[in-house]
Amino acid sequence: MRLLFLTNRANALRARISNTFTLPERFKGTVVEKWAKYWTGLVRDYKDVGVDVVKFGYNKPRKALVITGASLGLYACVKRNPDEEVFLQLLRQWNNKLILVSPTEQNVIAKEYVRDLELVLNRNTLRTLSLGFCTLLWVDLYSKDDCTYKAICEYTGVDYLKFYQYIIDIGFWNRYWRLDWKMRNFDINYL
Protein backbone atom coordinates (compact mmCIF):
# COMPACT_ATOMS: atom_id res chain seq x y z
CA MET A 1 0.00 0.00 0.00
CA ARG A 2 2.76 2.38 0.89
CA LEU A 3 4.36 1.70 -2.49
CA LEU A 4 1.20 2.72 -4.33
CA PHE A 5 1.02 5.87 -2.22
CA LEU A 6 4.60 6.77 -3.21
CA THR A 7 3.88 5.98 -6.86
CA ASN A 8 0.80 8.23 -6.81
CA ARG A 9 2.81 11.04 -5.21
CA ALA A 10 5.56 10.66 -7.83
CA ASN A 11 3.00 10.78 -10.66
CA ALA A 12 1.34 13.88 -9.18
CA LEU A 13 4.70 15.59 -8.77
CA ARG A 14 5.67 14.74 -12.35
CA ALA A 15 2.37 16.09 -13.68
CA ARG A 16 2.79 19.30 -11.68
CA ILE A 17 6.34 19.81 -12.98
CA SER A 18 5.36 19.07 -16.57
CA ASN A 19 2.50 21.59 -16.30
CA THR A 20 4.73 24.32 -14.90
CA PHE A 21 7.77 23.70 -17.08
CA THR A 22 7.26 24.11 -20.79
CA LEU A 23 9.76 25.00 -23.45
CA PRO A 24 9.54 28.47 -24.98
CA GLU A 25 8.21 28.72 -28.52
CA ARG A 26 11.65 29.47 -29.95
CA PHE A 27 12.94 26.02 -28.87
CA LYS A 28 10.04 24.02 -30.30
CA GLY A 29 11.05 21.84 -33.24
CA THR A 30 14.77 22.27 -32.54
CA VAL A 31 17.46 20.02 -31.15
CA VAL A 32 16.81 21.38 -27.66
CA GLU A 33 13.24 20.05 -27.69
CA LYS A 34 14.40 16.63 -28.90
CA TRP A 35 17.10 16.61 -26.23
CA ALA A 36 14.57 17.52 -23.51
CA LYS A 37 12.18 14.79 -24.71
CA TYR A 38 15.03 12.28 -24.70
CA TRP A 39 16.03 13.05 -21.11
CA THR A 40 12.45 13.10 -19.81
CA GLY A 41 11.84 9.73 -21.50
CA LEU A 42 15.05 8.35 -20.01
CA VAL A 43 14.12 9.52 -16.50
CA ARG A 44 10.62 8.05 -16.93
CA ASP A 45 12.05 4.70 -18.03
CA TYR A 46 14.45 4.50 -15.08
CA LYS A 47 11.66 5.49 -12.70
CA ASP A 48 9.50 2.68 -14.09
CA VAL A 49 12.35 0.20 -13.68
CA GLY A 50 12.87 1.32 -10.08
CA VAL A 51 9.18 0.95 -9.29
CA ASP A 52 9.09 -2.49 -10.92
CA VAL A 53 12.12 -3.63 -8.91
CA VAL A 54 10.51 -2.51 -5.65
CA LYS A 55 7.23 -4.22 -6.56
CA PHE A 56 9.13 -7.40 -7.41
CA GLY A 57 10.89 -7.21 -4.04
CA TYR A 58 7.57 -6.97 -2.24
CA ASN A 59 5.95 -9.76 -4.24
CA LYS A 60 8.85 -12.25 -4.12
CA PRO A 61 11.16 -11.29 -1.25
CA ARG A 62 13.21 -14.50 -1.20
CA LYS A 63 13.99 -14.40 -4.88
CA ALA A 64 14.83 -10.69 -4.63
CA LEU A 65 17.15 -11.41 -1.70
CA VAL A 66 18.93 -14.19 -3.61
CA ILE A 67 19.35 -12.00 -6.69
CA THR A 68 20.60 -9.06 -4.61
CA GLY A 69 23.02 -11.26 -2.67
CA ALA A 70 24.39 -12.85 -5.84
CA SER A 71 24.79 -9.44 -7.46
CA LEU A 72 26.62 -8.03 -4.46
CA GLY A 73 28.84 -11.13 -4.26
CA LEU A 74 29.74 -10.87 -7.93
CA TYR A 75 30.45 -7.15 -7.51
CA ALA A 76 32.75 -7.89 -4.55
CA CYS A 77 34.58 -10.55 -6.61
CA VAL A 78 35.08 -8.10 -9.47
CA LYS A 79 36.41 -5.42 -7.10
CA ARG A 80 38.90 -7.89 -5.57
CA ASN A 81 40.03 -9.48 -8.84
CA PRO A 82 43.85 -9.68 -8.71
CA ASP A 83 46.06 -8.76 -11.62
CA GLU A 84 49.64 -9.52 -12.66
CA GLU A 85 51.08 -6.91 -10.29
CA VAL A 86 49.48 -8.66 -7.30
CA PHE A 87 50.95 -11.95 -8.49
CA LEU A 88 54.44 -10.46 -8.80
CA GLN A 89 54.20 -8.94 -5.32
CA LEU A 90 53.06 -12.25 -3.81
CA LEU A 91 55.81 -14.12 -5.65
CA ARG A 92 58.43 -11.69 -4.33
CA GLN A 93 57.10 -12.06 -0.78
CA TRP A 94 57.17 -15.86 -0.95
CA ASN A 95 60.59 -15.82 -2.58
CA ASN A 96 61.95 -13.59 0.20
CA LYS A 97 60.52 -15.91 2.83
CA LEU A 98 61.99 -18.92 1.04
CA ILE A 99 65.44 -17.32 0.83
CA LEU A 100 65.51 -16.84 4.60
CA VAL A 101 65.27 -20.60 5.13
CA SER A 102 68.36 -22.78 4.83
CA PRO A 103 68.52 -24.69 1.51
CA THR A 104 68.57 -27.99 3.37
CA GLU A 105 65.34 -27.07 5.18
CA GLN A 106 63.43 -25.82 2.12
CA ASN A 107 60.54 -27.84 0.79
CA VAL A 108 61.54 -29.22 -2.61
CA ILE A 109 58.08 -28.69 -4.13
CA ALA A 110 57.94 -25.02 -3.10
CA LYS A 111 61.51 -24.40 -4.22
CA GLU A 112 60.92 -25.93 -7.67
CA TYR A 113 57.64 -24.08 -8.12
CA VAL A 114 59.24 -20.70 -7.37
CA ARG A 115 62.17 -21.55 -9.65
CA ASP A 116 59.78 -22.47 -12.48
CA LEU A 117 57.86 -19.23 -12.03
CA GLU A 118 61.10 -17.25 -12.13
CA LEU A 119 62.05 -19.00 -15.37
CA VAL A 120 58.68 -18.13 -16.88
CA LEU A 121 59.11 -14.50 -15.85
CA ASN A 122 62.66 -14.37 -17.23
CA ARG A 123 61.49 -15.82 -20.56
CA ASN A 124 58.69 -13.21 -20.61
CA THR A 125 56.05 -15.84 -21.37
CA LEU A 126 53.68 -15.19 -18.45
CA ARG A 127 50.23 -14.07 -19.61
CA THR A 128 47.10 -13.08 -17.75
CA LEU A 129 43.49 -13.59 -18.74
CA SER A 130 41.03 -11.65 -16.62
CA LEU A 131 37.53 -13.10 -16.56
CA GLY A 132 36.12 -10.25 -14.49
CA PHE A 133 35.70 -12.11 -11.22
CA CYS A 134 38.90 -14.22 -11.44
CA THR A 135 42.21 -14.15 -13.30
CA LEU A 136 43.97 -17.00 -15.06
CA LEU A 137 47.77 -16.98 -15.26
CA TRP A 138 49.11 -19.07 -18.09
CA VAL A 139 52.38 -19.71 -19.87
CA ASP A 140 52.59 -18.83 -23.53
CA LEU A 141 54.82 -20.71 -25.94
CA TYR A 142 56.71 -17.62 -27.06
CA SER A 143 57.90 -14.39 -25.52
CA LYS A 144 56.05 -11.11 -25.96
CA ASP A 145 59.08 -9.68 -27.72
CA ASP A 146 59.60 -12.64 -30.07
CA CYS A 147 59.11 -11.61 -33.70
CA THR A 148 59.70 -14.93 -35.43
CA TYR A 149 57.11 -16.45 -37.72
CA LYS A 150 56.13 -19.11 -35.18
CA ALA A 151 55.48 -16.49 -32.52
CA ILE A 152 53.41 -14.23 -34.79
CA CYS A 153 51.38 -16.86 -36.67
CA GLU A 154 47.97 -17.42 -35.05
CA TYR A 155 47.99 -21.14 -35.94
CA THR A 156 51.15 -21.96 -33.98
CA GLY A 157 49.92 -20.55 -30.68
CA VAL A 158 48.35 -22.31 -27.74
CA ASP A 159 45.50 -24.59 -28.83
CA TYR A 160 42.17 -23.76 -27.19
CA LEU A 161 41.46 -27.41 -26.45
CA LYS A 162 44.77 -27.76 -24.58
CA PHE A 163 44.66 -24.35 -22.91
CA TYR A 164 44.04 -25.86 -19.47
CA GLN A 165 47.51 -27.48 -19.61
CA TYR A 166 49.18 -24.07 -19.74
CA ILE A 167 47.35 -22.55 -16.76
CA ILE A 168 49.74 -22.17 -13.84
CA ASP A 169 47.58 -20.28 -11.35
CA ILE A 170 44.11 -18.92 -10.68
CA GLY A 171 43.63 -15.57 -8.97
CA PHE A 172 40.48 -14.99 -6.98
CA TRP A 173 39.66 -12.62 -4.12
CA ASN A 174 43.11 -10.92 -4.16
CA ARG A 175 44.91 -14.26 -3.83
CA TYR A 176 46.61 -16.65 -6.18
CA TRP A 177 45.47 -19.98 -4.87
CA ARG A 178 48.03 -22.38 -6.34
CA LEU A 179 50.93 -20.19 -5.23
CA ASP A 180 49.56 -20.12 -1.68
CA TRP A 181 48.91 -23.87 -1.75
CA LYS A 182 52.41 -24.75 -3.00
CA MET A 183 54.06 -22.45 -0.46
CA ARG A 184 52.07 -23.50 2.61
CA ASN A 185 54.93 -25.68 3.96
CA PHE A 186 57.91 -24.00 2.33
CA ASP A 187 60.22 -24.46 5.30
CA ILE A 188 59.83 -28.20 5.86
CA ASN A 189 62.14 -30.73 4.28
CA TYR A 190 60.27 -33.96 3.45
CA LEU A 191 63.36 -36.01 2.61
Rank of each mutant, 00 (worst) to 15 (best):
E105A: 10
V158S: 00
N96Y: 09
T40E: 13
R127Q: 12
E84N: 15
T40D: 06
L126R: 08
L42Y: 07
A70I: 11
F163H: 03
T22W: 07
K182N: 15
I152K: 00
V32N: 03
L179A: 01
E105S: 07
A10M: 05
N189M: 11
Y75G: 07
E118M: 07
E84K: 15
Y75T: 14
Q165N: 09
R16N: 07
E154A: 04
L136P: 01
R123H: 10
A10W: 09
L74A: 06
N189P: 00
V86K: 13
K111A: 09
C77L: 08
Y166M: 07
I67E: 12
N107S: 06
K97Q: 09
L42M: 05
K63P: 01
F27T: 11
A64H: 05
N107I: 03
S143E: 02
F172C: 09
V54Y: 02
V53F: 13
A70T: 10
R62Y: 12
Y58T: 15
D83F: 03
F172N: 06
K79D: 11
Y164S: 11
A12V: 10
L179V: 03
V108M: 09
K150W: 03
V31C: 14
G41R: 14
D187I: 04
V139W: 02
V32P: 00
V54P: 00
I170L: 07
P103E: 11
G132V: 04
A36V: 11
M1R: 15
Y190R: 14
T68L: 15
W39F: 10
Y166N: 06
E33I: 02
I188M: 15
L119G: 05
G29Y: 03
R175K: 15
Y75I: 12
W138Q: 01
D146N: 01
V78G: 05
D159Y: 04
I152C: 02
L72Y: 04
F172A: 12
F87V: 00
L65Q: 15
L126A: 04
E118W: 05
I67W: 13
K60Q: 13
P82H: 03
L131T: 08
L119H: 14
K55S: 11
Y58V: 11
R127Y: 05
M183Q: 02
V139Y: 02
D116P: 02
R2F: 14
